[in-house]
Design a protein around this nucleic acid. Sequence first.
DNA 1: AAGTTAAGAGACATGATTGTCCTCAAAAAA
DNA 2: TTTTTTGAGGACAATCATGTCTCTTAACTT
Lengths: 145, 145
Amino acid sequence: MIFSKTFGYAIRGVLYTAMVSNGKKVQLDEMAEVLNVPRHFLGKVMKRMVKEGVLSSMKGPYGGFFLNENTMTTPLYKIIEITGESETFSICTLKLSKCNSDNPCPLHLKMEEVRKECLNILSNTNIGDLLSKDQPDFIQSITTI
Amino acid sequence: MIFSKTFGYAIRGVLYTAMVSNGKKVQLDEMAEVLNVPRHFLGKVMKRMVKEGVLSSMKGPYGGFFLNENTMTTPLYKIIEITGESETFSICTLKLSKCNSDNPCPLHLKMEEVRKECLNILSNTNIGDLLSKDQPDFIQSITTI
DNA sequence: AAGTTAAGAGACATGATTGTCCTCAAAAAA
DNA sequence: TTTTTTGAGGACAATCATGTCTCTTAACTT
């Protein structure tokens, strides 16, 4: 499954915030540098996360991004929605808009199962799940591009 | 799985050729019109199919595209390769180039299985398989956009 | 041989995604 | 209240996928 770069940035941004902020807030500058992501672009991505309630932010000195009550339980699919990619799971592989179960293209059935499996993963995995593994070099795994 | 429009055009072009050509050849003009695809763009896609041996073509009057000994046994994955999308199956969901089984990103394991399943489908399905179903309105299913 | 028909191929146009730059707004510190 | 720090937001640039236009090349017909 190929999703946008934006999706990758979003996940990594949220995960990084969750990992390093123990009460304190994480600044965009730090985040962009450590994640090796264009700062202003990341800013817009994170802004959308905040707007949709996945994360919170505060301006001014000692401001930055921080977790809220939703963050850990946000399913990855929610982030797919926010980055505008939920159509991924309904768009026909051959890009036929009229393709569906009743009028399937020749690839429809075979692809349907893969699509569903992927949708299941993204719906049933949340941010907390990604963090809860005892991966010693977790930070490294999301910052090494 | 989202692949390019180009991939969709390629598959539909080859399938259409296989369906309507009984010995005779299929012209680009007809194909583009029936498939509802930009003519010159489709031309370039089909050209690549010919260059890679998936299909054959002939210029001049009564020329056009026609099947060859490879067409029916061409796995869909071959067309993925031709349209330059084989990286789909190795690119990390978070777009981390260093992500792999030894140094996995938090999503790596979960996505790996989906990716493998999809790769299996595309490797084990060929053009002939897509045609062999007795779908009465097959042509309609690949021409109705 | 000349004309016609079709694919091949290059140059350019458009649109979406990604990336950059500069300014604004809010929150804290001085 | 002024200054500083930080995210928010708009305008624009670069890149890549897709689409359009025009000319060239090859094969057949006359």
